[in-house]
């Protein structure tokens, strides 16, 4: 105790401002975070335990909103659609992104231009992307219909058909977000050490073995991080669906985000919607944690 006090005294001598400076510099940022992150979070949590009428809380219902979720067929369906959507999109994005990154690792003429072009989809506003895809998919005057008619077929039914609409949504997401995977994986590939690859070539490995024995295992942590990031992000997909299908036809593309939006703003069940989003948040958090845990274990073994 005496020693600790002594140490504190020594440290403080002549260093008062130096010690306080980091906290002073953190303070504005901390205030903003508290204001726009922590408070809404807390407010949302509070809302999820209340029942609302005409936009204002009328009673505390405890955890009833949460319990109700699990017997709500529409919610369960939207959850299932979301999981399918996330799994499909993210796997395609990972495979495509990895392939593109491997390809762009080689130095050749025009590689810089190619790398730049490849990341364009990612930087376009999602709503704009969705509008463009609607123009492509539209059954009356869309590009696909035009194409189909040019080769003698009829109207292309994309957004009107449940399965096609879902696939169309996945295609849109893959088109828009493969570049992110590509970018992260390319950075990862470029940061790998050179020598083991040269050693493998001297040791007798061909291109496929180098990939399977070196590239892939060495890239696994980066790949996992990229997948976790994309998964979390994909769970929250909203604007593209909102513009493209509004969740239809039927419930074919109704992701939880759309269902939550409808619940809150169409049906005015603010408390129930809050409970829904908190639940989804927890699910995503659990997913991310288990992915990272898994990654650690693989790394340590």
């Amino acid at each position: 105790m005496q020693g600790a006090r002594q140490a504190r005294k020594y440290r403080l001598q002549g260093a008062g401002l130096d010690l306080a400076l980091p906290y002073l510099m953190l303070a504005p940022g901390l205030m903003i975070v508290l204001g726009v992150l922590i408070y809404p979070l807390w407010d949302g949590l509070r809302a999820s335990t209340r029942a609302y009428r005409y936009g204002s809380p009328i009673s505390d219902v405890g955890l009833q909103n949460y319990v109700r979720l699990w017997s709500d067929a529409q919610f369960l369906n939207s959850l299932w659609v979301t999981v399918k959507f996330v799994a499909l999109s993210v796997s395609f994005e990972a495979v495509l992104g990895f392939a593109l990154a491997l390809f762009c690792l080689h130095e050749f003429r025009g590689i810089r231009l190619l790398r730049t072009v490849l990341i364009i989809p990612m930087v376009i506003t999602p709503v704009v992307v969705a509008i463009v895809f609607r123009l492509i998919y539209a059954s009356d005057a869309g590009m696909l219909t035009a194409l189909s008619e040019a080769i003698g077929g009829g109207e292309a039914q994309i957004l009107g058909n449940p399965l096609n609409a879902f696939i169309g949504l996945v295609v849109l997401d893959v088109w828009e977000w493969t570049p992110l995977m590509f970018l992260i994986l390319l950075a990862g590939l470029q940061s790998l050490p050179h020598e083991p690859f040269e050693a493998a070539r001297v040791d007798g490995a061909g291109a496929w073995r180098v990939f399977a024995d070196l590239t892939f295992p060495m890239m696994r942590p980066v790949l996992a991080v990229a997948i976790v990031l994309r998964t979390i992000d994909a769970f929250g997909t909203f604007d593209q669906v909102f513009v493209l299908t509004r969740g239809g036809p039927g419930e074919a593309t109704r992701l939880v985000s759309i269902y939550g939006y409808d619940t809150a703003f169409k049906f005015q069940q603010t408390g129930y919607a809050a409970a829904l989003f908190v639940t989804i948040g927890l699910v995503v958090l659990a997913l991310a944690f288990s992915a990272i845990r898994l990654l650690r274990r693989v790394d340590a073994s």
């Binding site: 050490p193 083991p196 040269e198 050693a199 295992p217 060495m218 696994r220």
Partner: peptide, 8 residues
């Protein structure tokens, strides 16, 4: 720099 295979 030895160039061992790090994950093996």
């Amino acid at each position: 720099s030895y160039a061992l295979y790090p994950q093996m």
